Computed example of a mutant assay.
Amino acid sequence: MPGMNYDRYCDFIGSSSELTRLKEKVEHIARSDAKILVTGESGVGKELVARRIHKFSPRATWPFVAVNCAGLPEALLESQLFGHVKGSFTGAYRDRLGQFEVADKGTVFLDEVSEMTLRMQGLLLRFLETGELQKVGLDRQTRTVNVRVVSATNRSLREMIAEGTFREDLFYRLDVIHVEVPPLREHKEDVPQLIEHFLKRFSQNGGSRPRTLAPEVIGMLVDHPWPGNVRELENAIEHLVVTSRADVIQVDDMPLSIRRPRAVAVRPKVERRRAVVDDLYRQVIDERQSFWTSVYPMYMRRDITRSNVRDLVRRVLKEARGNYKIVTRLFNLQPQDYKKLLNFLRKHDCHVPFKEYR
């Protein structure tokens, strides 16, 4: 993108052997034009990898466009990617270019590609095969574009293929080159450099005086398991910079979640997915937090996926014996939120049929 500070958005912070190998691989594969699938846990920096691939590619002077496939319902995602013509749907007051067209000659990053519906997967597959754009509201292709596609997911696409929720032919189109980003717990020696980087950034952005961390605090941060990876560490440092009044941050300034972490084991992906749903369930059922203030913000920030929300709905709907009005109450919402909740679930493809639970 013109004027983008690539040093800020593309640099890997750290010097561990794991990160060094990742840097070298990314810079090597960037020179080709092959499609790349980036995988790794939530918060490891998959978009950072995609931006660095673009930076070192022959397409670097052309646009880099990122699209979150999990944050939009199917109809809006189709419009976002392929564009639409005026009058094609309610609210389409003018023609709009899709992101594939905007990024012509550049790179498109499809984040959370696993959250696409099967229909959208079919549309994406056709585009990857032909490069032809068909805007929403037209029954013909409008033009051909030339973009490199880098996609990312924190889920196992092979497991989804076995479940029938992801197309095998699309998987092979996307997974020409595979890049796995390691979780932070596998390169903990980079934590001190990351801390220094985030301390400097948040102090400068907030206009506050520079802060330092007591040695005990640094040790605690290095030893923390960081299930949310670099994103969780970034949020923790921002919390400390904003809330601490002292120049040297002490252990007592640390959030309780870091001072008293729950045991986090390295679990298979199916178990981690179940653990996420357990946490969401505990928040809304045991701690009686509202769905709108707990689950909804995490989904919109991409901390949880559409599948996580769907699993939560399925679990609570089972308890409610298929009654969404009871689900509304269990989600600690007002009765008048019933239709709003259903609309949200349908819009984001999180709705679960109720009949199988009655």
Rank of each mutant, 00 (worst) to 15 (best):
E112L: 03
R301Y: 09
A92W: 05
L118Y: 03
A92G: 11
G122N: 10
V242I: 15
R185S: 07
R282C: 13
V38Q: 02
F171E: 00
L317A: 03
Y296I: 07
A236N: 10
F89L: 05
F171L: 02
D279G: 13
G83H: 04
L77M: 08
K269F: 08
L125D: 02
T144D: 03
A50V: 02
V176S: 02
S79D: 05
A265C: 09
P210C: 06
S15G: 11
F331E: 04
A214T: 06
T61D: 14
N205V: 14
R52S: 04
E159N: 11
S257T: 13
S203V: 07
L37F: 14
E24V: 10
R259V: 04
R273V: 01
E234Q: 14
D279S: 14
Y6S: 15
S32G: 11
F354I: 09
D139C: 07
P268E: 15
I304Q: 02
A103Q: 00
L118N: 06
K325I: 06
K355L: 12
L125K: 07
I285A: 07
V217I: 05
S307D: 12
L72R: 08
Q283M: 14
S203D: 01
Y296L: 13
L317V: 07
V266N: 14
G91I: 07
K35I: 10
A92Q: 04
G45H: 04
W226N: 10
K105M: 10
L233C: 11
I195L: 13
G71T: 01
T107F: 01
N205P: 06
F56G: 01
D303R: 12
T61V: 15
L280A: 05
V295A: 03
H197Q: 06
R282K: 11
L312K: 04
R329N: 11
W226E: 09
E78Y: 10
V145M: 02
Q141P: 12
P63R: 07
